[in-house]
Design a protein around this nucleic acid. Sequence first.
RNA 1: GGGGGAAUGUCCCGAGCGGCAAAGGGGGCGGACUGUAAAUCCGCUGCGUAAGCUUCGUAGGUUCGAGUCCUACUUCCCCCA
Length: 423
Amino acid sequence: MTAESFAPKSDFIRVLQERGYIHQASDLAGIDALAAEGGLTTYTGYDCTAASLHVGHLLSIMMLHWLQQTGGRPVVLMGGGTTRVGDPSGRDETRKILTLEQIEANKEGIKKTFSRFLSFGEGGGEAVMVDNAEWLTKLNYIEMLRDIGRHFSVNRMMSMDSVRLRLERDQELSFLEFNYMILQSYDFVELNRRFGTRLQMGGSDQWGNIVNGIDLGRRMGTPQLYGLTCPLLTTASGAKMGKTAAGAVWLDAGMLSAYDYWQFWRNTEDADVARFLKLFTLLPLSEIDRLAALQGAEINEAKAILATEATRLMHGAEAAEQAAETARKTFVEGTLAASLPSVAVPRSVLEAGLGVLTAFGPEHAKLVPSTSEARRQIKGGGLRVNDVQVSDEKAVLGLSDLTAEGVIKLSFGRKKHVLLRPE
RNA sequence: GGGGGAAUGUCCCGAGCGGCAAAGGGGGCGGACUGUAAAUCCGCUGCGUAAGCUUCGUAGGUUCGAGUCCUACUUCCCCCA
């Protein structure tokens, strides 16, 4: 039975299906039946490999959001324990081993994101957050081998994608990583015992780990467990979502400003707009259908709405409106928006004269990583001061370059702008 | 434990008779065209506002000169046990 032809009884599965979240499910009818009964407890795990989650994680967070909206109970599992091991899934090489301090710091950073999407608390439908370090770090090796390890067949583990691909390519797979799937499987069983969790959701690269958890549950006597994955997100032209030149598209405002986040969504390819509206906004499908019908340049309206709605979810309405307004002034009116990112520079420096190379470089605007890069970009016509292309790398900025607003606008390419503010 | 091979421009892959800031490709960035899109074309892709400086796993050595030759070490891969 394919996801497309299935007629769901539960609101939860209906929404996921309509909006395109479902990639694979262990037993869609079974999950649907459970969800229809109400109170379906579902978990998704997040490893603490960075100080913030990025857009790649957003799909699964949205699924948890819809779960809660449709009467289910989300369990957010922080991988404080599993991160110490490192998931080999979808990885060509061993992950860097993180220190316990790093993992703890990352965990604290990641936690903040979830409160935007889920409502946490003690009640029946309230979301819960737990850390698998709580039980994984207490495992005793021999006991673990006897109670859990005996249910795993090495023959079968070797056939799992996460292991097989490494072996086929002659890439190292340490015994440490080899154990990851056992720990994740055990998490599922443990969460069933603690919270009655019946369903695990995750990205499509987690399928193997999830299926193993279902099997382990059967062998260890849990009720029937289920798995559901969402597609790995790529853009229509095939690039991985969420990686830009500047790095990952972080969800945490401290690592990526609301304005940059808005810009990320605004720059969506035409072919992705409808799909992303369904996945990353809460707009009703009827509205999305209307926006998706827009053609040519009009589709930009849909992109702006996508950006504002997605930013509203992540950073709040105020930040989203402000980002939209800043973008409108900058790109549509071509005027100078006071809310563009700005960098303070001592007035005395401007009085003495500030070389353009330095102004754009890492010391001030940070638009380019080095002054050598600034020099190259000037040759290529990529740098502008107050919207005038810089042609001379020896040019010097001074107080006379201040605009009526009392700032100097530096631009790198068409899209990246920074205001220098004297102080 | 024995034998063989490999480490190249801090994104990846990858060429490199002793004169090399080092071929080529991917990716990325910029420009043009557009609609803050895609596709296409062009340019750039070590640091330095200059003279110049620092790169080819690490440390020594040979040489006027070393990514290239020699020695040791480190890491990885393959074959045998």
